[in-house]
Design a protein around this nucleic acid. Structure first.
Length: 282
DNA sequence: AAACAAACCTGTGCGC
DNA sequence: TGCGCACAGGTTTGTT
């Protein structure tokens, strides 16, 4: 479900709603959700601490606590963060529940809900991050950062020789793009999924550098993509509206909305369903 | 380096 | 109505 725009939408919701709040209770209902550090470390690191700042690296949510610990959340395929009153029944698959001290006796809960359990929650000392979450060091540049431009992208592509779609999904050159946005970005840049990095030239790199942030920022504005199965929602439970603006993802067999003269084709690339227009994208 | 398959899980939608 | 299968937003690991 969650790619950079969805994770960023969740980050903003958390920054607005739980920053500064103190954690008074932590429940782990499924050990697999905390497999990296174990339930004891999650509970010990969170209880009694207050959230100071909520950041994002690629698809990773990182919250710093006032006790020197850091909370890392990855939503995986089906993860959600739901803020709700403790009195409200917990959704199925609420694997980790964090209770906050309430100002007016109302104890709000942050629930990590994840049916497929590919997501995870970890808590560790901020100084130990490189050892506990080594993959953070291998993430590529942030495509919605101020400084992202054609120069930065060109540098990030240095030494790469393979096809664009697997590269975008790898997180190693650019961090945060998943299956939906890879296809949407490549369509708007008019590049096929199997174009190789060395074949791009100035124009190709320029098109990517323009459309990567344009698509992602537009999707953030829309609150992300909520598909027909309605799996994704922000921390208040509101769906995102960017799915209505998808030009290729989920449109295999339909007419291309850009050229209106060819049908969207679906293939499997990098083990993932890949949709593109054979006429517009070269 | 790069491409692929399999693994980790549960839920949903579709054809029969 | 029920069953079996395909498929789903991610990432890692192992194999060509």
């Amino acid at each position: 479900m969650p790619e950079l725009p969805e994770v960023e939408t969740v980050r903003r919701g958390l920054a607005a709603r739980v920053r500064g709040r103190r954690i008074v209770a932590v429940t782990v209902g499924r050990d697999r959700a905390v497999r990296r550090v174990g339930a004891a470390a999650v509970i010990a690191g969170l209880e009694g601490a207050a959230i100071e700042v909520v950041r994002r690296r690629g698809k990773y949510l990182l919250a710093d606590l006032d006790n020197g610990a850091r909370l890392m959340i990855h939503l995986g395929m089906s993860g959600r963060i739901v803020l709700a009153p403790g009195s409200e029944p917990r959704p199925l698959h609420s694997h980790v529940v964090v209770g906050f001290a309430g100002s007016a006796g109302e104890c709000e809960e942050m629930r990590f809900v994840d049916p497929r359990t590919f997501g995870e929650v970890a808590v560790y000392d901020q100084d130990d991050e490189a050892r506990i979450v080594p993959e953070l060091a291998r993430l590529g540049v942030d495509p919605v950062a101020e400084e992202f431009d054609a120069r930065v992208l060109f540098g990030a592509l240095d030494g790469r020789r393979g096809a664009l779609k697997p590269l975008l999904l790898s997180q190693r050159a650019v961090a945060g793009i998943g299956n939906i946005y890879a296809d949407e970005i490549l369509h708007r840049a008019r590049l096929r999924w199997d174009r190789t990095v060395p074949s791009l030239g100035r124009r190709g790199v320029g098109a990517l550098a323009r459309w990567i942030p344009e698509v992602l920022n537009e999707a953030i504005e829309a609150g992300g993509s909520t598909l027909a199965d309605a799996g994704y929602a922000d921390v208040e439970g509101r769906p995102g509206s960017f799915a209505g603006r998808h030009l290729v993802y989920g449109r295999a067999g339909d007419m291309c909305l850009t050229c209106r003269r060819a049908r969207i084709v679906r293939v499997v690339a990098a083990g993932r369903s890949t949709s593109y227009c054979p006429r517009c994208q070269r």
